[in-house]
Design a protein around this nucleic acid. Structure first.
Length: 471
RNA sequence: GGCGGCGUACCCAAGUGGUUAAGGGAGAGGUCUGCAAAACCUCGACUCAGCGGUUCGAAUCCGCUCGCCGCCUCCA
């Protein structure tokens, strides 16, 4: 079995071969911290988290780097609007981003470099580009990359300079040699933060940080570079030009880009004003329900955001946790199926095929049905195997990692509290109903049950008594 | 204008040349139950936007038409 992934550079699926056998180096473009993260960012965070988790579970030693862009025009402008320092603003949104990452159940990257902590490396890179005749300074201290000096410019995004210039929407800057040249270093305007450099006081251009930091931590060639598909051009095209131009390296072996989250058939984005902050969404929905929802669509297809869609996924997730809880209660033995076990083979096959998380989720639920069927039949051995498949799928996808009893208790308690009920209230009504049932007063028993149902609480009568859950 | 992608059941969504077109949500019937709920079983696209073509064989390849989206500007 071979891991296959879609490489943006070749526009086709390729068999993945790591630079060093058994090891994988990954650099993902992270967030520009000028505002809270939205659901589009959540897709990026969850997808690459799943990719890293899967590859680790799959037996690879993964080095995962995700940067933070903590200096740029938007940060400066936003800080100015709010009358605080750009540093304080960036730090605050970094903390909020970390909170969102944790809430979504994502691992933190091994290294999370910040642009402003790598100014020296970036200056060094510009100097190297200058030596290769690919960088030029204009009078006032701005430095540009000369795209016409880099023959492969446009190869990643599949475009060429003539086409781009024909349809360019950018204002042509007379100081540039070519309209597509981009800034490596920006001279500081009055009141802006700056760092000293051979070209004067200023700050780095956006694309530079990722070239400098990825190569610093992962080497001049590394395995995977990822991000949203809007980064293909110009960001990744420019990174590639900088890194390859400076060091004549292959730079990135596999480029992976995921599609957007959409709302009403339109890209979710800050500039369109249709973005939902992760923080706000998680007040309304289960974080793991959102996570499952994001994984239920293949990463290269657009995903429509809707509360109803997340609710559907959450229902499915709860069902899976209920199956696990049921298995725990029945005392089925725990099996741990590694990626090379026959039980995990279908999941590995799905995920090896360009991270088909959709199919992976399907496998998880097929196993859930098998488990319930076996438990219905009292076949604990078969139930244990099916539950083992569920857990293996969970490990590969980053789902079902929590204790089922704990998850369900929390989920149900939140439902009850939304209805203004405490667990003790519900227990009291259950006790009252138990007495009514014992007296064969089914009319009263049914009234009590209907009362709770109206508040979103379902009662279930089982052999061991009555339990309650969120409708 | 250039480049790229998508259109599969009521909804979401896998599958991209060959056994009965995954899975989830919703719905209908059944088993179970005091009645329910949950779970399970059954049903649900003779069909994959439309029309042509290639092939022994296509949702899957090619062409055209219609509809939708993305990138070409900061953006996950």
């Amino acid at each position: 079995m071979a891991l296959v992934l879609y490489n943006t550079r070749s526009r086709r699926e390729e068999v993945f071969e790591p630079l060093t056998p058994g090891k994988i180096s990954i650099y993902v473009c992270g967030i520009t911290v000028y505002d809270r993260c939205h659901v589009g960012h959540a897709r990026s965070l969850v997808f690459f988290d799943t990719l890293v988790r899967y590859l680790r579970w799959r037996g690879y030693q993964v080095e995962f780097v995700r940067n933070i862009t903590d200096i740029d025009d938007k940060i400066i402008n936003r800080a100015r609007e709010r009358g605080e320092s750009w540093k304080d603003l960036a730090d605050r949104f970094i903390a909020e981003m970390h909170r969102d990452v944790a809430a979504l159940g994502c691992v933190q990257p091994d290294i999370e470099p910040r642009a402003t902590e790598h100014i020296g490396e970036m200056i060094e890179l510009i100097a190297e580009l200058e030596r290769h005749g690919l960088a030029y300074a204009v009078g006032d201290g701005d430095v540009y990359f000369a795209v016409t000096g880099f023959a492969r410019y446009g190869a990643l995004s599949g475009r060429n300079l003539e086409e781009m210039q024909a349809g360019a929407r950018v204002d042509v800057d007379e100081r540039k040699r070519s309209p597509m040249d981009f800034a490596l270093w920006k001279a500081a305007k009055p009141g802006e933060p700056w760092w000293p450099s051979p070209w004067g006081n200023g700050r780095p251009g956006w694309h530079l940080e990722c070239s400098a930091m990825s190569m610093k931590y992962l080497g001049r060639v590394f395995d995977i570079h990822g991000g949203g598909e809007d980064l293909i051009f110009p960001h990744h095209e420019n990174e590639l030009a900088q890194s390859c131009g400076a060091y004549d390296t292959d730079f990135v072996r596999y480029w992976i880009h995921h599609a957007f989250v959409r709302i009403d058939q339109e890209k979710m984005s800050k500039s369109l004003g249709n973005a939902f902050a992760i923080e706000d969404v998680l007040k309304e929905v289960e974080a793991e329900g959102l996570r499952l929802h994001l994984l239920s669509v293949h990463y290269r297809s657009p995903l429509d955001f809707s509360a109803a869609g997340i609710a559907e996924s959450t229902k499915a997730l709860v069902r899976a946790y209920e199956t696990l809880a049921r298995a725990d209660e029945a005392g089925v033995p725990r099996h741990e199926y590694g990626f090379d076990s026959p039980q995990a083979a279908p999941l590995v096959e799905a995920m090896d095929a360009d991270f088909n998380t959709t199919r992976g989720v399907g496998i998880l639920f097929e196993a859930a049905r098998d488990a319930n069927r076996a438990l219905d039949a009292g076949d604990l051995a078969r139930g244990a195997e099916a539950v083992g498949v569920m857990r293996a799928a969970g490990l590969g996808l980053g789902l079902l990692m929590r204790s089922p009893a704990e998850f369900l208790a929390g989920y149900n308690a939140r439902g009850a509290s939304q209805a203004g009920l405490a667990a003790a209230d519900i227990e009291r009504l259950i006790g009252e109903r138990r007495e009514a049932r014992a007296a064969k007063n089914f009319k009263r028993a049914d009234e009590l049950r209907a009362e709770l149902l109206a508040q979103g609480i379902v009662l279930e009568d089982g052999p061991g008594g009555t339990s309650w859950r969120r409708a």
